[in-house]
């Protein structure tokens, strides 16, 4: 028996938004530690890793590990039937071929349940090596979304360059060049509005704008986002999900041919 009840159901709705543009289907791996999902996009350029800890749920029960293959388009349709205020419970029997989503209104006067067929997915998990990144940049998530949107107009690729002074995002294309420089915040009233840079060595890498824009679908999950970079390895874009977990996106760089 698997059962996970989330008081703040809107978080699951937001998680869905953060996944569905990149992934058509994915396996939700459930254990007593919580729910994890790891999947590559169709082109195998990026990897999404979601972690929702058991402690973050109001009620969590997982008698035996199970992997639920879900069509994210279908799951998204179902989650659209939940109100933002609803409490959401995900339920499945052991070895079941369906999963049930239960939505309760806050005052319990409306309860809906939706059963969805599970899929058999050929799972391919990748081992992500522990990396000490040369640069980590924390910035407001809305700012990052704005930068990705603005620079996408100029070209397919964006260069992210980080030095001690700040971080520069650049894109070049037929109409010209765009450069956005963000300095490390000197003094901030609110932690989540800060730009904070930790740097061991300067790094400059090129990434496809298309994927970065897809990652920013997670913006509503967190006020800030963390970018981690090292020379010639994938970028990590991490959004924390309140007290329950995180979604991380890994994006392979573009390298000089």
């Amino acid at each position: 028996m698997f059962e996970a009840r989330l008081l703040q159901g809107s978080l699951l709705k937001k998680v869905m938004e953060a996944l569905k543009e990149l992934l058509n289907e994915a396996a939700w791996d459930c254990s007593d530690a919580g729910i994890q999902l790891q999947a590559m996009d169709n082109s195998h350029v990026s990897l999404v890793s979601l972690n929702l800890r058991a402690e973050g749920f109001d009620k969590y029960r997982c008698d035996r590990n199970l992997s639920m293959g879900m069509n994210l388009g279908s799951m998204s349709k179902i989650l659209k039937c939940a109100s933002n205020e609803d409490i959401i419970t995900i339920k499945a029997q052991d070895n079941a071929d369906t999963v049930t989503f239960v939505f309760e209104s806050p005052d319990q006067d409306k309860v809906s349940d939706y059963e969805m067929k599970l899929m058999n997915l050929d799972q391919e998990h990748l081992g992500i090596p522990e990396t000490d990144y040369a640069c980590t940049i924390r910035l407001p998530s809305s700012e990052f979304a704005r930068i990705c949107r603005d620079l996408s107009q100029f070209g397919e690729s964006m260069v992210i360059s980080c030095t001690k002074e700040g971080v520069r995002f650049s894109a070049t294309g037929d109409i010209g060049t765009g450069n956005i420089k963000l300095a490390q915040s000197a003094k901030v009233d609110k932690e989540e509005e800060a730009v904070v840079i930790e740097m061991q060595e300067p790094v400059s890498l090129t990434f496809a704008c298309r994927y970065l824009n897809s990652f920013t679908k997670a913006t509503s999950l967190s006020k800030s986002v963390q970018l981690s970079m090292s020379p010639e390895v994938p970028l990590v874009v991490e959004y924390k999900i309140e007290d329950i977990g995180h979604v991380r996106y890994y994006l392979a760089p573009k390298i000089e041919d």
Partner: peptide, 14 residues
């Protein structure tokens, strides 16, 4: 000219 790398060239299959 830059070439898009695949994520599988950095992370190994388990």
């Amino acid at each position: 000219k830059t070439k898009q790398k695949s994520i599988t060239s950095f992370f190994t299959r388990k």
